[in-house]
Design a protein around this nucleic acid. Structure first.
Lengths: 206, 206
DNA sequence: CTGCATCCGGGCCGATACTG
DNA sequence: CAGTATCGGCCCGGATGCAG
C-alpha cells in the first residue's frame, strides 16, 4: 500500500484519527455521504469548489483507509467506520454554529446541508412532539422535515401534503426552527410562510 | 485581516469550522493547549515533527481567528472559543481509538498525551469511586492520576505518595486502566506494577 | 537559550483540458 | 457520466540564521 498521506507519526488517538480525516475535503465528503450513498457526479455537485481530480483521489484514499466502499450500482457509501464519523461531524458543527453569521454573497449553498443542523435541533425520540410535515425551500431541491412517532427526520424532495411550507434563506429557516427568532422576525428577514407557523412551537420547547 | 487560509466558501457549519481548524497541526496544537498554557518551546516539544516556522505561523493564525491568546508571561493559551474544541478533540479520539494497535517503533510519544484518553475513561463525577493516587511512567515526565471526591484528574509530575505505580508502554497502561486487560496480561506485555493492582477494579466497573 | 524568521526543494492543491 | 492527465503555484517540512 502506498502511504501517500503524510502521517503525524504520533502514538495518540487524535493524531491517528487526523491521519485518516485530516486532509482537505475528507470530512466534507463524509458530510455528503452521511445522507446516503451518492454517485460521483452527485458528490461533485454537493462539494462546490473541489477539483475533480482531488475528489477522485480522496475517494480512492478513503476507500483504502476503510472509510468508503462502492455499492453494487457503483455508488459510494460510508462503511461502518465511516458512519462513526457522524459524531465528529456533529461535534465540529455544534462548535462552529455560533460563529456563523448570515449567509454572504460569495457563499455556496446546497439544500442538503440543512439536514445535519436541523437533525441536531431535534435529537432522539420525544413522544410529545406533534405529527407535522414541513417543506423547506432554501434554493435548489426542496427538503422535507417530518415529525412522526416522536422522531424528526429530514429528507430530500418535496412533501406530498405539508402542514407548513417555509421559503427563504437557510440561516433564517434554521433560526426559526431553532426558535431563536419568531415568525414575524423571520418574515422581516425574507422568509415566506404557507400554513400555520404556530405549529413550530409545539415541535421544539422554548 | 488577511484571510490567508483558503476558505471552503460554503455556508455550512462543518465547512466554517474546518476553515478554522482544518489546517494541518491546528488540532494537535489545541490538544497540547487543552492541558493548560504552554511556552513556544514546550509546544514544539509536544509536537514532534512540526517545523518551527509552521508552529509560529499556526499560532499567529489561531490568534487571529480567536482560538489562542497570549498570557501576561508570554505563554500561549486557549480562548473560550478554543476551549470549546475539547468536545471535537475527544470525538475524534473516541472514533480513532479502536483503530490504534500497539505502539510501533517509528511512533513518537509524549507522556502528556495520555491525559485525554485517561480522562475519557473516567468522565464526570461518580461518588462510588475510591480515593486513589496512581503514578504512571510511560517515558518522559511521569504523570499522576488522582481519584478524589468522585472525580478523576490527570496531571503532569510524580505523585508524593502514590497507592500504585504503573511503569510500561502507554498502550498497555491505558488498556489496564480501561480494564480491557487484567494485571497478569499487562505484566506479560511489559508493565511493572508497584502496589496493589486490585485497587483499579474499584475505580472502573467492568 | 528561547523564540522565532528566512531560504529552499518537493509535494499537494486547484483549475483546466481531455478521454472512454 | 466518471473520471484521468497535466501544469502552475502555494504550502509543507527540514535546515539554518539570528536577535533578545
Amino acid at each position: 500500500m502506498l502511504a501517500l498521506v503524510k502521517s503525524y507519526g504520533q502514538y495518540c488517538g487524535l493524531a491517528r484519527g487526523l491521519d485518516l480525516i485530516g486532509e482537505r475535503w475528507v470530512l466534507l465528503i463524509v458530510r455528503e455521504l452521511l445522507n446516503g450513498p451518492r454517485r460521483y457526479g452527485e458528490l461533485a455537485d454537493g462539494l462546490p469548489g473541489i477539483a475533480t481530480n482531488l475528489l477522485a483521489e480522496r475517494l480512492r484514499t478513503m476507500q483504502a483507509n476503510g472509510l468508503v466502499e462502492r455499492t453494487d450500482d457503483d455508488r459510494y457509501q460510508l462503511t461502518a467506520l465511516g458512519q462513526g464519523l457522524r459524531d465528529v461531524v456533529f461535534a465540529i458543527g455544534r462548535w462552529a454554529y455560533p460563529l456563523m453569521g448570515p449567509i454572504s454573497e460569495g457563499d455556496a449553498f446546497r439544500s442538503q446541508w440543512i439536514v445535519h443542523p436541523v437533525s441536531a435541533l431535534f435529537p432522539g425520540v420525544d413522544p410529545s412532539r406533534p405529527e407535522l410535515t414541513i417543506e423547506v425551500r432554501c434554493g435548489g431541491e426542496p427538503m422535507t422535515v417530518r415529525s412522526a412517532a416522536g422522531r424528526v427526520t429530514v429528507q430530500e424532495g418535496q412533501a406530498a401534503a405539508p402542514d407548513l411550507v417555509l421559503t427563504g434563506p437557510p440561516d433564517v429557516v434554521i433560526a426559526l426552527l431553532a426558535r431563536r427568532i419568531d415568525a414575524p422576525d423571520a418574515k422581516a428577514r425574507g422568509l415566506a410562510v404557507t400554513g400555520d407557523a404556530r405549529a413550530l412551537r409545539r415541535l421544539r420547547p422554548a
